[in-house]
Nucleic acid binder design. Structure first.
Lengths: 334, 334
DNA sequence: ATGAAAGCGCTAACAT
DNA sequence: ATGTTAGCGCTTTCAT
């Protein structure tokens, strides 16, 4: 393994000089610098991270907390975050956590054993100990979810976005609109509120029977939720799903029952994941600016790590209603 | 930050003794041991990983090399690998690499800067320097892909699986069978070989015009590939796609042209990703045992790291043809 | 502008 | 059974 001293010896300088070159410090003779760079290229030398971390007393590592069964939306999100983080010189460590408290505890333990520079949340952790630790150690943290923990957050306005989606259905003449919600996450709760808000604004009576709570944000859960809904009653002409994956599962259940989309039932999703534009029919949905959310959360964390605190804690990014083929006017009979 | 010397001083012993306790070595007085443990608990001391890694010359970290735009199949795979690795006491570091040589070089540099215990490949790297480095440093490596680099591998028989898929179409009476291939990866080449093998076995003449090479394993690429195919000729009744995501894109293109699946054209995918069972029609495909591939590659790497080498370098796991709704008998006219 | 030297926190070989 | 010592590879004063 080639080390900084090897390079120094080969060039005939001290390790300090090589270090200065590596870190772009000034006060280095241009000629020597060229020499050093040449040898570095020849030998393929790369600084040892552990040694650097130790002397610098930090790890250049960011923890990313993400659900164990992360969906396509989270996948797209974390890939942009990872890329951004690497470009800032961090590496990222993933903490996959299940939706139970023992898994959360385990995650916290692993978190402690690392000397993280910062943490990005793509998942909602319930455990107060988790937040207490981060608070005590002053480790910077940024979230991409709604939360009540006064954590710097980059997100969209989930309530308004949901309301926009439901209003789209209302504008098409739908009155009996069901919702497949996912209330185990607070953003799911916000989306449910948005659904109710739109109904209220249109003077449509709320009806709890028209709402099912899916246990996960997966297609499978969406399929079961829709089956459940269809068992209760067929007296609805539209569905609003709290995520595209839920919507995809719901569509499967409808198709299995011989229902036509959107002629019999219109459906609106949430997220605008890649695949939604490939389904048949193409899914109408609320687009989250995934790329921007990822980019800005990485940037925000980077700023925090370097001691810059933004005035506003929460950044709200714009969403967009993408109208495709899964929604149409309600038929007069309905 | 509390260090091992702090603990040693508080208890009145040497750092070595504390180290011995931390690492469960014997030859420590039971009483002292208890003392030390007590202080450790009180102070919340956690060993500094960077320091430990440096002196031990290893990191307890496994690198996972994965395509930048990893697809659903790889996502499911790496999730199971990660889980398994954590259970063995490693943490995993992801190396997202694009399909170009500068990205591969960057990946190699990052790889060098970490003292990885091992590497798992979910992506094919072309650069010889990459393999040379791993070889020189004797870092254990396990792959989940076909390759010619004599690397221990866990995979399925891609050629045979492809052949099985095409035989399924042939058995349904199809003769004009196209393929959407992805030859930039060697497993893609194997699948193409399997396609040709099946045709040969059925006495159907090979026709290069019936094969398109997609540039990526994505739905988008699949859609363009199918458009291309349809532009060339409509004289085919079935398609074999090198992945489910390609198939999904291809289906989109067919639907857009008003073609019915499977009545007008049958289609077979490859991988059996979750979503394939939600599409309309449900996709007939070749299932890869994702969970087993993930589990066994993590286990194999763990063994290698601990100096155990298996006799057989490559493990071939069984695939399975999953017949669903996207394939049916060829109509007599075709 | 550059080198010498100290030290980050830990482990292991070597004493005792 | 336990302490002493010597690094691991790097950065950073502090000299010169």
């Amino acid at each position: 393994m080639v080390s900084i001293t090897d390079i120094a010896q080969k060039v005939g300088v001290s390790p300090s000089t090589v270090s200065r070159v590596m870190n772009g410090k000034k006060y280095v003779n241009a000629e020597k610098k060229a020499q050093i760079l040449k040898i570095i290229a020849e030998t393929g030398y790369v600084p040892n991270k552990a040694a650097r971390d130790m002397v610098l007393q930090r790890s250049f590592t960011v923890g990313i907390v993400i659900p164990d069964t992360f969906n396509v939306f989270q996948r797209q999100l974390f890939s942009t975050i990872e890329r951004q983080l690497v470009s800032f010189g961090y590496r990222s460590l993933f903490f996959f956590v299940k939706f139970d408290s023992s898994s959360e505890k385990q995650c916290l333990d692993r978190l402690k054993s690392e000397k993280l520079d910062g943490v990005i949340m793509l998942h909602e952790i319930k455990s107060p100990e988790f937040y207490a630790y981060l608070d005590n150690t002053k480790i910077p943290i940024v979230s991409t979810l709604c939360n009540d923990n006064a954590i710097p957050t980059i997100k969209i306005d989930d309530k308004q976005a949901a309301s926009d989606g439901v209003h789209h259905l209302i504008n098409l003449g739908h009155r009996r609109i069901t919702m497949i919600a996912g209330c185990h996450f607070s953003f799911g709760l916000r989306r449910l509120e948005g659904y109710y808000q739109a109904l209220d604004e249109a003077g449509i009576e709320r009806n709890e029977k028209l709402v099912v709570d899916a246990q996960q944000y997966s297609s499978e859960a969406g399929m079961y939720a829709m089956r459940d809904l269809l068992l209760r009653s067929r007296d609805f002409s539209a569905v609003f799903a709290a995520s595209d994956e839920l919507a995809i599962g719901a569509m499967r259940a409808m198709l299995d029952e011989g229902l036509r989309i959107p002629e019999d039932i219109s459906i609106v999703g949430f997220d605008d994941i890649d695949i939604s534009n490939y389904f048949h029919p193409r899914l109408t949905t609320l687009r989250q600016p995934i790329f921007e959310i990822g980019e800005q959360s990485a940037l925000k964390l980077h700023r925090y790590i370097n001691g810059q605190t933004d005035a506003e804690c929460t950044t709200v990014l714009p969403h967009k209603l993408i109208i495709r083929e899964s929604t149409c006017s309600a038929t007069p009979s309905r």
